[in-house]
Amino acid sequence: MVTAEKDIEEILGKYPNASRDALIPVLQAVQEARGFLSREAVLRIGRHLKLPASKIYGVATFYNQFRFQAPGRNHVQVCRGTACHVKGSAAVLESVKRVLKVNPGETTKDGEFSLEVVACIGACGLAPVICVNGEFHASVTPQKIQDILDSYRGKAR
């Protein structure tokens, strides 16, 4: 297995003498490689760009795209776009949160599921929609969530 540190060093190597303006591209590259921004990654990036950790964490939490927990084996996206909202996605999201016992951006303790809220996944005709590991589930209701998620338990992505 490639060590975690090595891929970060590789990314940082592409930004020699970089300063704060390289922060977002670096964060994106690290998230792309690792799936999330670990604490160690944030601290390492800070040393490279000579930025305090509080600043990096502040920037990263400003944008929805960054997450700070490793993604689960199954990745659940709940659409909160306009069409889905009109069709009741707020209640769907509540149901997912209740079933998984996590908030958006978090991963369940057993590493099985991670939850993400997205603004629109371009399937408005199927609203409200959730997407698990890239598979779309159309016209979901809060009642259906338990069964849908259960069907993924134990499955690798």
Binding site: P52, S54, K55, Y57, G58, T61, F62, Y63
Partner: peptide
């Protein structure tokens, strides 16, 4: 020192 910053949005 930069111990604190704005977090979130």
């Amino acid at each position: 020192v930069s111990a604190i910053d704005f977090i979130g949005r």
